[in-house]
């Protein structure tokens, strides 16, 4: 399978934070979601992919090419949406387009105008007067107007209202429809990923907890819920973040098949949501 993005052994250390041995890949034509709590390392990975920060070790390959020393060249083929898009607030939407466009060989003004119309961007309004949602839509229009083959977005849906969020997610699905464009996006809003992601990479404190297809996640990870007297049976490496109460217990497992076999009929084993996974992994670590 042709890969749009391949990351191996990626490391980056900051005071108080360490990204360790991160590895995952995004096949062409698919959407990969990066999830994790705040501080898990999502933004660090995206910055490393974009070449905004320098890696300590590891390898990043984008669209089949090694990233080292070719970041600028590869960015021609990447569309990037920053978590809080930076613009000159005193310039108009149209003027911002004029600042970005000359740097791309494949810039398509017609495409930008179509997207501007679709996103209802006011071309002659100053960027500083736009709402957060409209700023994100502007960032997206700028990122998609040079026919990017890989779209990288850092928390694009945070702070957006549900209507705008749904439209944005719809746009992402539309993008990969050509089979050549791929999307990597980070979020801590897990319901967004449930809706659109084909692959999920879950991060916790700078490490990859799992990287798999959305269906594999649904099959492998489960919530085990049962009476308090059976809580002691949930022992082993595949159980995370046990919660005990007077009426019962809840625990996350990364091996649903084994849990069903172990507990039998007296205990409920149901698919875990991504939110469950994030919550119980965090609980387990603390």
């Amino acid at each position: 399978m042709e890969l749009a993005l391949e990351i191996r052994g990626l490391c980056k250390a900051y005071p108080g934070f360490r990204l360790e041995d991160v590895a995952f890949s995004v096949p062409r034509g698919y959407i990969m979601g990066l999830i994790g709590a705040n501080g898990a390392g999502k933004t660090t990975i995206i910055k490393l992919v974009m070449g905004l920060i320098r890696k300590d070790a590891g390898c990043v390959r984008i669209l089949g090419e090694d990233h080292d020393g070719r970041e600028a060249h590869l960015r021609e083929r990447i569309g990037f949406v920053h978590e809080t898009p930076a613009f000159y607030n005193h310039l108009t939407v149209s003027a911002m387009r004029g600042i970005v466009a000359p740097h791309y060989d494949r810039w398509d003004d017609g495409c930008f105008l179509l997207l501007a119309e679709e996103f209802e961007l006011p071309l002659h309004k100053k960027v500083g007067t736009l709402s957060k949602g409209t700023r994100t839509k502007l960032a997206l229009a700028l990122a998609l107007s040079h026919h990017a083959e890989l779209v990288v977005m850092d928390e694009p849906t945070s702070g957006l209202d549900p209507v705008v969020r749904r439209r944005l997610l719809g746009k992402l699905q539309e993008l990969i429809g050509d089979g050549a464009t791929s999307v990597l996006f980070s979020t801590h809003i897990t319901s967004d990923l449930e809706r659109v992601a084909d692959y999920v990479t879950c991060l916790h404190r700078g490490k990859v907890v799992f990287f798999s297809t959305r269906d594999e996640v649904r099959d492998r990870w489960a919530m085990v819920k049962g009476p308090p007297d059976r809580a002691g049976e949930a022992v082993g490496e595949s159980y995370y973040g046990m919660r005990r109460g007077e009426v019962g217990f809840q625990v996350l497992t990364s091996n649903a098949v084994e849990a069903r076999r172990r507990f039998g009929d007296g205990v409920l084993v149901e698919p875990a949501t991504l939110e469950d996974i994030m919550y119980y992994l965090g609980r387990s670590a603390s």
Binding site: K47, M50, G51, L52, A72, H73, L74, R75, E76, F80, H82, P85, A86, F87, Y88, N89, V100, H103, Y104
Partner: peptide, 14 residues
């Protein structure tokens, strides 16, 4: 003032 360094660093220019 507008924190534009990452913006320009994410364009296809060295």
């Amino acid at each position: 003032r507008f924190r534009m360094d990452p913006f320009f660093a994410s364009l296809p220019i060295r």
